[in-house]
Design a protein around this nucleic acid. Sequence first.
DNA 1: AAGTGGTCTAGACCACTCC
DNA 2: GAGTGGTCTAGACCACTTA
Lengths: 233, 233
Amino acid sequence: MSGTQGQRWQAIRSEVERRIQTREWRPGERIPDEVELAAEFGCARATVNRALQDLADAGLLNRRRKAGTRVALHPVRKAMVDIPVVRLEVEASGARYGHALLSRKVRAPTPELAQALSVDPDQPLLHLVAIHSADNAPFILEDRWINPAAVAGIVDVDFDTVSANEWLVLNAPFTSGTFALTAAMASATEAAHLDCNAGDALFVAERTTWIGARPITTVRMSYRPGYRLETGI
Amino acid sequence: MSGTQGQRWQAIRSEVERRIQTREWRPGERIPDEVELAAEFGCARATVNRALQDLADAGLLNRRRKAGTRVALHPVRKAMVDIPVVRLEVEASGARYGHALLSRKVRAPTPELAQALSVDPDQPLLHLVAIHSADNAPFILEDRWINPAAVAGIVDVDFDTVSANEWLVLNAPFTSGTFALTAAMASATEAAHLDCNAGDALFVAERTTWIGARPITTVRMSYRPGYRLETGI
DNA sequence: AAGTGGTCTAGACCACTCC
DNA sequence: GAGTGGTCTAGACCACTTA
């Protein structure tokens, strides 16, 4: 067996992956079923199952009961993007983290926002604007709306001490959410806070989280120009 | 038990997740070990193990032998970003896919590129520029360098018929790669091909793939203005 | 040294789906 | 109906880490 590493199921995974890479098993082709592979590798079926499930999760195999397991025709590679607390992301890069609350208001949401969050347009939300910095240089401008009805005690929190980002992670666990990445030209406001020019291309991450059917918060994080979100495949 | 769905281990996962969400088990707190939970839920330890491993993968639990399992202090949420073949991404949105090869040259790489790919600066690479379209509107401008030494038969492929994107996925499986997302202002060239203005903010994905220690290809995909990469959390 | 998670086994039953 | 993957069990041993 080739890439023999750690545990048995990983060795099997490596071997199957090798056969796919070398085109011994070609895209679209059906591979032996779990019982056969278990016999070949001299292990229990559950061990083979674990290896194949892992490859299916990675998008390299398609599995269906009765139909068997086939090499994916179009291996949809999946990149895992970690979404850590901003403070930890900055500190992991070796920089000193800082953050400042720029604005804090209780106000009614815009109609679009009310609809996106499925909240009553007349119900005021907490609107925060804050800047995160790395080694005193602007890093992220955070524009956040919070539904106070879904987060007990939120109106009494001192966001000068703790960032909303971090407080919410600890105190308002969510059950589901959406996440979007895009690019946008810096507005005059963003340019001022991020110390760049209006019109510069900013990397933007938008997130909305829910607990059950109740919206918690929606946030737009605008990164300083030049930011790159890197990951392995 | 609350979120009883499908299989037993998923029900256990839901129940544990609920206890975390309701702060019955607080961040940093140690939870009962697998044997205890198996007894409580009346199942085998392996079933509990599967549920807890899933939650650990999701970033909600931290597990260490002997130290036990604890609720994560900073739940690092992970977003899965699918990287499908462009054609499938377009077709999945209901649009008609098109693509055109704009340029194809064999040339020496720039010094930076040669270094990034760890190839000999004097060794010529295949340089392709292509446009992907959705319903005849420009969608992605692809700028790609391919190492012909790593991909047999590449110089004979007719990329007018098949996009390099798709051909490589089928014919040059990779073992590792890097993936980066960023934002950039459209150059004059990009603006011309993407039918936008120079300076517009473009969402850019860069990918470099390797087979073992040999570089295969590096590509920069510039999306039309306004593109959003969406995913669940 | 001992506790806890990680993995493996042999066997079983079930669920889905193709024929 | 029958083949194949999905899950579960009871038990075992191992590997890592803390005490």
